[in-house]
């Protein structure tokens, strides 16, 4: 089975280290969720993995072949970037149909029928300029390019930003339909974690330029607990475990625990134990102390 691999990947901008020794292995045929706070390095990582930007150190390979400036490998990857709204000069002065035409030229497996079908489904006017589109419509364009590219490894950066709830639902259904049909690998970077959590087979958390964890979503949630109660009871119940994000409210305490294999909470203390959602776990792991 093929895999896209990052080994000790670093990226610096003006001496600022944005990515620090990233080691990551993306297996074929999975949907990955890439989550992290603003500025965590998600877009930078995806742009390096797709050969859009060079890394400052380390290597990125697909099935053992380097990705950078390697057309054979690049043809298997599509990173549909988030399009930001700017007026006038630049990419935004292009029309939707120009975007799609360029995509048809560059992506070797471009599916024009699918692109046309999605343009109609999202009720987009192909003659409309990118700078005149709403944020939701811009997201639709990035989704169309990603899905119609039919690339083996497809990365989407904030695909649901600005989409209303119906359009988001449509997107997840389209994504699953395409995934089931083709077995492509998708990496989806998003801030709307809870909604997307069900779709992610694996979740990759990026924090301050480092991979915090990469794990099967269900397995991760099965070992994540929020423990609350009197401070001394919580401390005792979680003693010796991996504890994150302790919160004090008066004499009470809340803490997030990630159990390792064979570990369990000490049940002899009167504490409340709750399962966690991916979003809450993310806040606990990446939120820091307030």
């Amino acid at each position: 089975m093929g895999s896209l691999k990052c080994e000790n990947v670093k990226k610096t901008y003006n001496k600022k280290e944005v990515l620090k020794d990233i080691n990551l292995n993306l297996e074929q045929g999975k949907i990955y969720g890439l989550i992290g706070r603003n500025g965590a390095g998600k877009t930078t990582l995806l742009s390096i993995m797709s050969s859009q930007n060079p890394q400052s150190g380390g290597s990125v390979t697909l099935d053992g072949e380097k990705v950078w400036e390697n057309q054979k490998v690049i043809d298997k990857i599509c990173f549909s970037r988030e399009i930001s709204q700017m007026s006038g000069f630049g990419q935004n002065s292009l029309k939707i149909k120009d975007y799609l035409k360029a995509a048809a030229i560059f992506y070797p497996k471009w599916n024009k029928e699918m692109a046309d079908e999605l343009v109609a489904k999202f009720e987009l006017n192909p003659k409309k300029k990118i700078c005149k589109l709403s944020k939701g419509m811009l997201s639709m364009v990035t989704i169309i390019i990603a899905l119609a590219s039919e690339a083996e490894y497809t990365f989407l950066d904030e695909p649901v930003a600005g989409l209303d709830v119906v359009a988001r639902d449509q997107f997840y259904k389209l994504l699953l339909r395409e995934y089931t049909k083709s077995g492509r690998t998708f990496v989806i970077s998003t801030h709307i974690i809870e909604e997307a959590a069900e779709v992610f087979e694996e979740v990759i958390m990026l924090n301050q330029g480092k991979i915090l964890l990469k794990e099967n979503t269900q397995e991760l949630l099965e070992r994540a607990y929020h423990v609350s109660g009197k401070a001394e009871d919580v401390e005792a119940a979680t003693a010796g475990l991996e504890v994150y994000h302790k919160e004090m409210i008066g004499r009470s305490m809340g803490a997030t625990v990630l159990l390792k294999e064979g570990e369990s909470l000490n049940g002899q203390y009167p504490v409340s134990v709750q399962k966690m959602t991916l979003e809450k776990l993310f806040v606990a792991l990446c939120g820091g102390e307030v």
Partner: peptide, 14 residues
């Protein structure tokens, strides 16, 4: 300003 970004973001080599 525009076209090179489009090229590179769609997999064109430098």
């Amino acid at each position: 300003q525009c076209y090179l970004q489009q090229c590179f973001s769609m997999g064109c080599k430098r």
